[in-house]
Simulated scan of single mutants.
Amino acid sequence: MISSESILKTWNKFNDFPMETLTKVWFYNGGSAKKQRDVSLMREHREQFGMSGNCFDLALWLLDEFKRDGVEAYPVGHNLGSEEAHAAVIALNEKGERFLCDLGDQWLSPILIDTKSTDYTNEKLSGFFPAARVHVQDHSSGTEIHYHRPNGKVSKQVFQTERIDMDTFLKAAEHSQHLIKNHPLLECRIPYKSEIAHWEFYNWESFLSTTEGLMKDPKLETVEEWAERIQGKTGYNKVVLIEILKHYKSTQL
């Protein structure tokens, strides 16, 4: 179920890229009419401020890197044009087998979704998603993933795996970048003991998801304290974080 070295080589460039809506708000208020950033601008923001982006940003950036590295890949997604929109990428190995590459949900590694492949297994697998074992199966809309948590809870998600043409995808991305919610969100993968865990900041709370269970962080009161905590997890520019978080605070007054 593990992808080829060629896919992993590109994927691993993004190991320390969070998924977040902080950059989205910051750029939305920056005055540009076009809200979906080009990959070249994303690279500049990453270099200057340490920022990454939301699921559409990450999918477009990953597609660009796959193209540079000679790996065939295309965009996929579901609920495009709505508040529930989600974007990901399908990459093909040398045999033409498809692998789901989802930076938006902070997967640890791409996973095989072709159930007829000789490498496919319907077992619950560790090492692909933080703090959960995953099980891949076919669905009438594409692929269904089951997430088995340490506490016994099981959730599932359906991925529409049909290729989306780039014009349609870019329109959906632009639409998504115009949808501004009142609650800040950031998710990232960080080392914890012998695993890579999932840290999340949402609506002024943060917690770590591990195979040992959920660990809530102490609450913080000030924007400056939150900026310091987020910077410690992501390396984002603290001054920019304070600016973004102050904006979120002002919208909730």
Rank of each mutant, 00 (worst) to 15 (best):
Gln160His: 13
Gln160Cys: 11
Thr161Ser: 11
Thr161Asn: 06
Arg163Trp: 05
Arg163Ile: 08
Arg163Gly: 02
Arg163Asp: 08
Asp165Arg: 07
Asp165Ser: 08
Asp165Thr: 05
Met166Pro: 04
Met166Glu: 13
Asp167His: 03
Asp167Leu: 09
Asp167Glu: 13
Asp167Pro: 01
Thr168Met: 09
Phe169Trp: 05
Phe169Tyr: 12
Leu170Phe: 02
Leu170Gly: 08
Leu170Ala: 05
Leu170Val: 10
Lys171Phe: 05
Lys171Val: 12
Ala173Asn: 02
Ala173Phe: 00
Ala173Gln: 09
Glu174Cys: 00
Glu174Gln: 11
Glu174His: 07
His175Cys: 07
His175Gln: 01
His175Gly: 01
His175Asn: 10
Ser176Tyr: 04
Ser176Pro: 02
Ser176Met: 03
Ser176Arg: 07
His178Thr: 15
Leu179Ser: 03
Leu179His: 10
Leu179Ile: 11
Ile180Cys: 02
Lys181Leu: 12
Lys181Glu: 14
Lys181Asp: 12
Asn182Met: 07
Asn182Arg: 11
Asn182Thr: 09
Asn182Val: 03
Asn182Tyr: 05
His183Val: 09
Pro184Gly: 09
Pro184Thr: 04
Pro184Asn: 10
Leu185Tyr: 15
Leu185Gly: 02
Leu185Ala: 11
Leu186Cys: 09
Leu186Phe: 03
Glu187Ala: 15
Glu187Val: 14
Cys188Lys: 03
Cys188Pro: 01
Cys188Gln: 01
Cys188His: 03
Arg189Asn: 15
Arg189Leu: 14
Ile190Gly: 03
Ile190Ser: 06
Ile190Arg: 10
Ile190Gln: 10
Pro191Met: 08
Pro191Ser: 03
Tyr192Gln: 05
Tyr192Phe: 15
Lys193His: 12
Lys193Thr: 11
Lys193Glu: 14
Lys193Ile: 11
Lys193Asp: 13
Ser194His: 13
Glu195Thr: 11
Ile196Asp: 04
Ala197Cys: 04
Ala197Pro: 00
Ala197Ser: 15
His198Tyr: 09
His198Gln: 08
Trp199Val: 06
Trp199Ala: 12
Glu200Gln: 14
Glu200Asn: 09
Phe201Val: 06
Tyr202Arg: 10
Tyr202Val: 09
Tyr202Ala: 04
Asn203Ile: 00
Asn203Leu: 00
Trp204Asn: 10
Trp204Gly: 09
Trp204Ser: 02
Trp204Val: 03
Trp204Cys: 06
Ser206Thr: 05
Ser206Leu: 01
Ser206Asp: 15
Phe207Asp: 03
Phe207Gly: 10
Phe207Ile: 00
Leu208Asp: 10
Thr210Lys: 02
Thr210Ile: 01
Glu212Asp: 15
